[in-house]
């Protein structure tokens, strides 16, 4: 079996679900003939036709709104927003409609749609192509926010997202789209949503992260291992609803917590995780919580983007900070 990349995991999951469930429709800008600007939908239109893989006009609110309408009437739309910087016009539809439809109609209409959004920095892209806005969506009740960090999780979590009876915003860390190859059988096995994945077990400190930052975090843990420091690494995977249990259980064991995110520092997912631990496991903590994050600045253009994003060194330092009495 040939190993595949994260983005090929996305493609494979889309193809699998389209084959299995004819309600699944792929739509977005350039997803058809072109196969998506990142190639996530490559070959799908050729295989499933131009009705089930539809190029749309260029309007993100429309793509999201059309998906809400389709989902409410029995389809399973999987829409692509080309880059996270263009997702903002769609927020109205996601927050005011997708997230609320089940609640507003007391379950009469539901919204089983997936909005796939490549996100994050590190690919030397133009302006508005490198943000990490997951916290904005995670703050909104009624939607799931899911982020894979490996080919296997891209495949398994996207399958789960498409099968979910409720809307999912699926952020894809574009920086690691082609970083790693992994053998991922096309067995249609979805991975569970709403749970964290422990990537590495350890004893001295719990390091919680997600998306592309899992890679800097793993490298940092390797370096620290040379100094005899054992890191437990947790990939959050489903940002919202957040799996408190896995994080709390780990912190109660290690007594230390470092959270690593690419997004700006304040009011974000790291803040929420820190709050949950402070509320529910404060007395297990032997040291203050440490956060390694992007800065509270506008994501710079690419000549400075590596200075913005937490480097392996910053993660190492952040974990060391969590180890200091």
């Amino acid at each position: 079996m040939a190993a595949i990349t994260l983005i090929e995991g996305v493609t494979r999951a889309l193809a699998h679900e389209m084959e299995r469930d004819e309600r699944v429709i792929v739509l977005g800008e350039d997803v058809g003939v072109n196969g998506g600007v990142f190639r996530a939908t490559a070959g799908l239109q050729q295989r499933f036709g131009d009705q089930r893989v539809q190029d749309t006009p260029l309007a993100e609110a429309m793509i999201a709104g059309l998906s809400v309408g389709m989902a409410a009437q029995g389809m399973r739309p999987v829409a692509e927003i080309q880059f996270e910087g263009f997702v903002y016009p769609a927020v109205d539809q996601i927050v005011n409609h997708a997230a609320r439809l089940r609640t507003r109609t007391r379950g009469r209409l539901t919204c089983p749609m997936v909005l796939r959004v490549p996100y994050g920095g590190g690919i030397h892209a133009p302006e508005h192509h490198s943000d990490s806005p997951e916290a904005m969506f995670a703050h909104m009740p009624g939607i799931r926010v899911v982020i894979p960090s490996s080919p296997a999780r891209a495949y398994g979590l996207l399958l789960a997202a498409i099968r979910s009876p409720d809307p999912v915003v699926f952020f894809e860390p574009k920086r690691i789209y082609r970083l790693q190859k992994q053998e991922v059988p096309d067995d249609g096995e979805a991975l569970p949503l709403d749970v964290c994945y422990t990537l590495r077990e350890g004893e001295d400190v719990t390091v919680v992260t997600w998306g592309a930052m899992t890679w800097e975090t793993l490298k940092a843990a390797d370096q620290l291992a040379d100094d005899g420091i054992s890191c437990e690494i947790i990939d959050v995977a489903t940002i919202s609803p957040l799996d408190h249990e896995t994080i709390l259980e780990s912190v109660e064991r290690t007594g230390r917590l470092c959270i690593v995110q690419e997004a700006p520092r304040s009011f974000g997912v790291a803040s929420e995780i820190a709050a949950v631990v402070a509320e529910q496991a404060l007395y297990s903590l032997r040291t203050p919580i440490s956060r390694v994050t992007g800065y509270d600045t506008i994501m710079p253009l690419f000549r400075l983007e590596t200075e913005y994003m937490p480097s392996v060194q910053r993660v190492v330092d952040g974990i060391r900070a969590a180890l200091e009495e």
Binding site: L66, G69, A72, Q73, H97
Partner: peptide
């Protein structure tokens, strides 16, 4: 947009 999506 919901009407358009339903129509689709």
């Amino acid at each position: 947009l919901h009407a358009a999506g339903a129509a689709m």
